[in-house]
Computed example of a mutant assay.
Amino acid sequence: MSPDALKDLALTALETLKAQDVTVLDVRNKASFADYMIVASGTSDRHLKAMADQVHIDAKKAGSPPLSTEGQDSRNWILVDLGDVIVHLMKPETRALYELEKLWSIGPNRSHEST
């Protein structure tokens, strides 16, 4: 599955479960391990887990199961590694603390798209 199709699949899964403040970061010129990062907020640890599960289920159905999922026991941050797309699901306070969008916007290519 292409990186763009994988990104769209993840975005659709997150939209289905009402992810909040979804941001897509294009990291093709900054990272060798992924093309996109998606950062989204959830309202509770249950919400984070439900979103991660939905991304996992949808990716697996499409023939691109996640390489790994980290933080399933966490109450603040779950990462779903789809290979070319990394999905970060966080509670708002954790997201504010780590500021991934700010971190990845540093450098020559500052473009990112919000949805």
Rank of each mutant, 00 (worst) to 15 (best):
S111L: 11
G42Y: 01
P65C: 06
L48D: 01
R95L: 08
L103C: 09
M51D: 02
A50K: 03
F33R: 05
L25H: 02
D84V: 09
K91Y: 08
M37L: 13
V22Q: 07
A40K: 02
L82P: 02
E70Q: 08
D84W: 06
T94Y: 04
D45R: 06
D45M: 08
S41A: 13
L82H: 04
D84C: 08
G83W: 03
A59L: 07
L9T: 05
K61T: 15
R46I: 07
A5K: 13
K91H: 12
S32F: 15
A10G: 08
L103D: 05
K102F: 10
A19C: 14
P66G: 04
V24G: 04
A52D: 01
L48R: 00
K49Q: 08
H88M: 12
K18M: 08
M51R: 01
P66E: 05
A96R: 15
A52I: 04
M90Q: 00
T23D: 06
S32W: 15
R110Y: 10
L100Q: 03
L97W: 14
E113L: 09
S111H: 12
H47F: 13
Q20F: 14
D73C: 14
L6N: 00
K49H: 07
A62H: 13
R75K: 11
E101L: 09
A34P: 02
R95D: 00
K30Q: 13
D53T: 09
H56R: 10
D45Y: 05
L82S: 02
K7I: 12
S74L: 00
I86C: 02
N76Y: 14
S44A: 14
L79F: 10
Y98R: 03
A52V: 07
E15V: 15
L97A: 10
E70G: 15
L48G: 02
I38L: 11
G107L: 03
R75C: 12
L79M: 08
M51W: 04
G107Y: 13
R110F: 10
L14S: 03
S105R: 11
G71W: 06
L100S: 05
S41Q: 02
R75N: 14
I106L: 12
E93M: 12
V85F: 01
A50L: 07
P92R: 04
I106T: 13
D81G: 10
H112K: 11
A10L: 02
H47T: 10
D45Q: 10
A10C: 14
A13G: 00
K91V: 13
G83M: 05
S111K: 10
P66D: 00
M37N: 00
D35Y: 03
K60N: 04
D81Q: 13
E101I: 14
L25K: 00
A40F: 02
D35R: 06
H56L: 14
A10E: 06
K61E: 09
N109A: 08
L82N: 03
L6F: 04
M37D: 00
S114H: 14
V27M: 00
V55R: 04
V27C: 05
N109T: 14
